[in-house]
């Protein structure tokens, strides 16, 4: 083929492939947008989803551009049977290179600007914010509501539509955790020694979960806490209930919840199976304990309290001293009492 025919057929191929790219781009963008989305439940999620959909559109277009272009070239310019020799000789095109440097540069810079604007939207302070102090520890969560006077709650209750300002911290001797509610679409690490914050406005009532999102050790997988977004009235009722006194049965039930939510379950089972990291709780109350220092004693309430708050003072023989020593900071007196009541019920 002489140079002239080449030019003409190049133009023809280019037109065909451009049409194909356009068609496939539309299909892939629509397809990507049609992928079912994880439910979202905050005003921040609206911004995040919007930006992500914008990304998806660019992804769909670029995917079609490169893949369709490439597959088309591979088909049209394949070596046919019996064909020898080399391809056409051209070494580059500075004009083209500049075009495909400058256009992406412009796109990228605009995404940078959009990114900055959305970042401001997502992190902006709102009026009428409610403060919730979140404390993370290995392996559980604790929520304080300074304005409502509720302390050391183990589940997170939020009134719908009210902006929340989370003040996050991890205990000084603890490790890094991360506060993530997938439905809220935002997360923030909790770093020992470095206080952090996060703003969320829940806008859909429902039950969600806080999941620790930064590997924090053995119990990382199960470092969860329930989140319920409820109406303002239900929230007020819950606050009132939290402040009221409770019966032993209610305490034991709370203890059962704490066993799971505070991560006790990672080391202490309640089924009596041997081989756990820590002793089983089944039949623990009232039993005879052999301690690592050679002494022994009966597991009474006082012993259980010591074991929870400072387990290493009376370490049971055969177990490693791995239990966190920070439960005096983490658990309220009521919660320690609840755990003890719960252990008492495990005969």
């Amino acid at each position: 083929m002489d140079q002239g025919t080449h030019r003409r057929s190049y133009r023809r191929h280019f037109i065909i492939v451009s049409i194909l790219v356009a068609i496939v781009a539309v299909i892939s963008i629509v397809g990507l947008w049609a992928v079912p989305e994880f439910p979202s439940a905050s005003t921040q999620a609206i911004t995040v989803n919007w930006l992500f959909d914008l990304h998806l559109a660019v992804i769909g277009f670029l995917f079609a551009l490169v893949m369709v272009f490439m597959l088309y070239i591979l088909f049209v310019f394949r070596r046919r049977a019996g064909e020898e020799g080399d391809g056409d000789h051209f070494e580059g095109n500075t004009k083209l290179e500049i075009i495909w440097t400058v256009i992406p540069l412009i796109v990228v810079l605009s995404f940078g600007v959009i990114g900055a604007v959305t970042l401001r939207d997502v992190t902006a302070a709102q009026e009428n914010e409610m403060t919730v102090n979140v404390t993370a520890f290995s392996f559980g969560w604790q929520f304080d509501y300074p304005e409502q006077g509720v302390e050391k709650a183990t589940t997170l209750k939020l009134p719908v539509g009210r902006p929340v300002h989370f003040k996050l911290k991890s205990l000084d001797q603890d490790v890094i955790h991360s506060f993530y509610v997938a439905e809220f679409r935002v997360k923030q690490d909790l770093v020992p020694g470095v206080p952090t914050e996060l703003r969320v406005t829940p806008n859909v009532e429902g039950a969600y979960r806080v999941r620790c999102n930064e590997l924090c050790g053995t119990g990382h997988t199960n470092m969860l806490a329930d989140v319920t977004v409820v109406s303002q009235a239900d929230f007020d009722a819950w606050v009132a209930e939290q402040k009221a006194a409770v019966s032993p049965e209610r305490l034991a039930a709370m203890g059962q919840e704490l066993h799971a939510s505070q991560g006790c379950i990672a080391c202490h089972n309640v089924t009596g199976e041997p081989g756990g990291v820590g002793p089983t709780w089944k039949g623990l109350y009232g039993s005879e304990r052999q301690f690592a220092d050679g002494t022994s004693g009966v597991a009474d309430e006082e012993y259980l309290r010591t074991s929870i708050l400072a387990s290493q003072e009376r370490l049971v023989a055969g177990y490693a001293a791995v239990m966190p020593q920070n439960y005096a900071d983490v658990l309220s007196d009521q919660q320690v009492a609840a755990l003890i009541e719960y252990i008492k019920t495990l005969k």
């Binding site: 070239i73 591979l74 310019f77 051209f90 290179e97 992406p104 990228v108």
Partner: peptide, 24 residues
């Protein structure tokens, strides 16, 4: 985001390399 630019240059240049070849 800037890293996308030189990476894009590579992709497009590869396509340019393939265009008009006798691909085996």
């Amino acid at each position: 985001l800037l890293v996308a630019v030189p990476t894009g240059v590579k992709f497009f240049s590869w396509l340019g390399t393939l265009w008009g070849g006798r691909i085996e």
